[in-house]
């Protein structure tokens, strides 16, 4: 595989990737969700993923509410994708999943193999970051079942993506998670309920109190992870702004930003400005660092530990630009 420095400088096929907004991973009240998407409709984001992906007990928005928001976003020119639950255990969750997968108006994002199975053979679906597509043969098999777009798993490196892009089946779009706290693990246990000394079946939906999740620090006060119900996230926000030139060269089609309680609109605007040459990568990196709740990281993309921040790459990319 070609090292970064050997990339062709005359690659004219590199086009500007689209921007997407991933599903809201936290539990926000109904009004906040409506207001959030009212603002998102005004941003230059191209694709919006909607729906509850973390916990089936979060039901402040009903299916028809999501569809109403979907219609509003579509009217504003956004492509809407309906996202589905990441951990399917109970039969009630399976029935709800089947309902969503039967929707023929919007594309569906599968986050569990149950959804992939239900969507197989249908016109086209997306796999989210929790579906383990780690090699070309997996990507090809899913493409043969109707996959149209995949989100690159967050723990893999740009070198692996480079290899996979070379073998990418015809018509498949590649999306990369470029900004936000990383979804790292899922459990049957609710860590938010555990923190409040509540049983999961009597959790009182206390996760609604933490719009960006609950910070978990080490015993020496270093921000480490974030508790978000049954999901565990990184405390640091993944930020691949310094690597978007690399992604263009790799033929990445879509860059995903993950919503946070504050400043999501500004973050979208920063990425958009950077993608269209209206803001330098360095300026964008500095602004994004300030907007991240507890710092940034980009280690996975560079082949290291996810929590690391490979800053030398920032200088390299900017000198190439």
């Amino acid at each position: 595989m070609a090292p970064i420095t050997a990339r062709g400088s005359n690659n004219m096929s590199a086009s500007t990737p689209k921007l997407s907004l991933g599903p809201i991973l936290y539990y926000w009240d109904r009004d906040s969700v409506y207001e959030f998407y009212r603002q998102i409709a005004q941003t230059p984001v191209d694709i919006v993923y909607l729906g509850e992906t973390v916990c089936s007990k979060r039901r402040l928005l009903r299916d028809q509410d999501w569809l109403e928001i979907a219609a509003q976003l579509e009217q504003a020119g956004k492509q809407v994708v309906l996202s589905t639950l990441t951990l399917i255990e109970a039969n009630s969750e399976l029935s709800k999943l089947k309902n969503i997968c039967n929707n023929e108006q919007y594309m569906i994002e599968a986050n569990d193999m149950a959804a992939v199975n239900l969507l197989s053979g249908k016109p086209g679906f997306v796999t989210g970051p929790a579906i383990n597509i780690y090699n070309s043969r997996t990507l090809q098999l899913l493409a043969s079942q109707g996959l149209r777009r995949w989100v690159f798993p967050v723990e893999l490196s740009r070198d692996t993506l480079a290899d996979m892009q070379q073998q990418r089946p015809e018509g498949i779009e590649t999306e990369v998670f470029v900004y936000g706290r990383l979804p790292l693990a899922f459990s049957a246990r609710c860590f938010t309920a555990r923190h409040h000394n509540l049983q999961k079946d009597d959790c009182q939906l206390r996760c609604i109190e933490d719009a960006d999740g609950m910070l978990m620090s080490t015993r020496e006060e270093a921000p480490f992870l974030v508790i978000n119900g049954i999901q565990t996230q990184s405390a640091k926000s993944c930020n691949l702004i310094s690597d978007i030139e690399d992604m263009k060269q790799l033929g990445v089609d879509i860059l995903r930003i993950s919503p946070q309680a504050k400043s999501t609109v500004e973050i979208i605007n920063i990425f958009h400005a950077c993608l269209h040459g209206k803001k330098s990568v360095q300026a964008a990196a500095i602004e994004l660092e300030a907007l991240s709740p507890t710092g940034t990281c980009n280690g996975y993309w560079h082949g290291g530990a996810g929590m690391e921040l490979a800053e030398q790459h920032l200088n390299k990319t900017s000198s190439e630009a």
Binding site: N132, Y134, F186, S187, A188, G299
Partner: peptide
Amino acid sequence: CVMVEGRCLLSSYVTGQSPNT
């Protein structure tokens, strides 16, 4: 394992190596 196997990246987040990889 308290996390769902195959869907836990905590180890690679800290060390670069996970059960998956």
